[in-house]
């Protein structure tokens, strides 16, 4: 076991991890932040997407120890208690959530997109969420949710 220090959703953590533990497993098993989902475990579905030092990454591919001193944002870090984050509100208002399995990762990809590009075109939205599979919505509602956020503070 090795010591790992990092910041998750604004809180500083010190945990003991196995050298080959992934960031995904650490978040879910040690910090019990189970909002981040495990889908394919090989970079192909985006369900495990978190924001690491400002960038969307597949947490299933990142060794936990690679996140030493990193700042991580997971879906749990978006809402303030019962008050949802504007992206979450927009997803609900547009019907962009069905089974919900893709939603945490999808929302973090959207957050990373809007942080860099507050008024994306439809093509840029599609590109921004191209690393996240959704088997329910057909993506249309998700794109509409993101469009409804254009220019708003997220």
């Amino acid at each position: 076991m090795e010591k790992l220090e990092l910041t998750v959703n604004g809180y500083h953590y010190q945990v003991q991890v196995e050298p080959d533990e992934t960031l995904l497993d650490m978040l879910r098993e040690q910090l019990k932040l189970t909002g981040t989902k495990s889908g394919c475990n090989k970079g192909e579905c985006g369900a495990c997407t978190v924001i690491m030092n400002g960038m969307a990454v597949n947490s299933c591919l990142v060794p936990a120890l690679q996140a030493r001193h990193a700042e991580i944002l997971t879906i749990e870090g978006l809402s303030k208690g019962e008050e949802l984050h504007p992206i979450q509100e927009a997803f609900l208002a547009s019907g962009a959530v069905q089974c919900g399995y893709c939603t945490p990762g999808m929302i973090l990809s959207v957050k990373a997109l809007l942080d860099n590009n507050p008024k994306p075109t439809v093509a840029e939205i599609q590109e921004g969420i191209s690393g996240n599979l959704c088997r329910c919505t057909g993506y249309e509602q998700i794109v509409q949710a993101v469009q409804s956020l254009a220019g708003k503070k997220v």
Binding site: N58, L113, E127, G128, S130
Partner: peptide
Amino acid sequence: VGSPQIRNI
């Protein structure tokens, strides 16, 4: 290459 997440790392 891949997806935004893959291109980031």
